[in-house]
Simulated assay, not measured.
Amino acid sequence: MNPVQETVLLYYPKKPKYLPKIKSIFVQLGIQFRILDAASTAQKIGYLTGRTGFEKSTSDVPFSKIPQSVLVMDHFSGVRMDVLFSYLKKAGIPSIDLKAIVTDTNADWTFFALYQEIAKEHARMHARRAIVTRIEESDFGCEGRPDGVIAMDHVYLRYEQESEEFCLMAEDEQLYADHIDENSTVLVTADGKILPL
Rank of each mutant, 00 (worst) to 15 (best):
Y11A: 04
P16S: 06
L19W: 03
L19V: 00
L19T: 01
P20H: 07
I22R: 11
I22M: 15
I25T: 12
F26N: 06
F26L: 07
Q32L: 13
I35G: 04
L36I: 04
L36K: 07
S40C: 12
Y47A: 01
L48V: 01
G53S: 06
G53E: 11
E55W: 06
S64H: 15
S69V: 01
V70A: 00
V70I: 09
R80W: 11
V83M: 12
V83W: 08
F85N: 15
Y87T: 08
K89E: 15
P94G: 07
V102T: 07
A107T: 05
F111G: 03
E117N: 12
E117F: 02
I118W: 04
A123V: 02
R124M: 10
I131S: 05
V132L: 07
R134T: 09
E136F: 08
E136A: 10
F140A: 09
G141V: 07
C142W: 05
V149C: 11
H154P: 00
Y156E: 08
R158C: 06
Y159K: 06
E164L: 07
F166W: 02
E171G: 04
D172P: 00
D172V: 05
Y176D: 11
H179N: 12
E182V: 06
T185P: 01
V186D: 06
I194E: 08
P196Q: 02
